[in-house]
Amino acid sequence: MAQNNPNFILMVEDLTVSFDGFKAVDNLSFYVEPNECRVIIGPNGAGKTTVLDLICGRTRATSGSIGFKGQELTRMREDKIVHSGVGRKFQTPSVYEDLTVFENLEISYPRGHSVFGALAFKRDAGVTARIEEIAETIFLSEMLQSRAAILSHGQKQWLEIGMLLIQDPELMMLDEPVAGMSVAERRKTAELLNRIIQDRSVIVIEHDMGFVADIATRVTVMHQGKRLSEGSMAHVQADPKVVEVYLGH
């Protein structure tokens, strides 16, 4: 594999993190191309979420490197990583319940993120227009003035996706975006994701194989912190090791 290929937007190399001797991620390498949708699958405890935590800076690597557009992320502060173009959605919907949907989206609007920037922030027509546009995309136009606390589980997931979308990140990381959703919500979300993963790189963790087959450019299978297999959906589904530990016979 061409390790220094400048065409890769994200280069994860020999990444290891050890919690008291337990290696949650063990010497993992993978590469993501621009506009690629990479899906990470694997059994529970394989280290999938930890990989996302490492990339966005929530967990610090024990060794290895994470290169994003030529910058090293392993020692960068979390908010700087975000500003370099990495957005991340958490597994359980994480929204600001005491604020309205509009205010939730406004906080993620990419302006006024310093202390004094936030004090001086003005809600101008551009901000309002952009928030309304995003709300339309995530099916929440009618809910803009409602407190986020009253949203359903699925709507909270959409709101958090909207909060990522308004940041317009070059690399978007989604941790189980359709988990806990009804069938109808799931279908709408798949449609939403298919729309927003255009023009950017995306890493998705997901268990729903139908959904994975629908969106993935390539699939990485993880097991016990290591990469078990990688390639197209058809390739990993045919891989006997993957069938053994994850997909089942």
Partner: peptide, 23 residues
């Protein structure tokens, strides 16, 4: 100000604020 709303947001979901690009 938006600062005030960021404070409320931090109380609700600090990590979400952090990974929305705030220090």
């Amino acid at each position: 100000s938006k600062f005030g709303r960021v404070l409320v947001a931090m109380r609700d979901a600090e990590d979400r604020v952090r990974f929305s690009g705030y220090d």
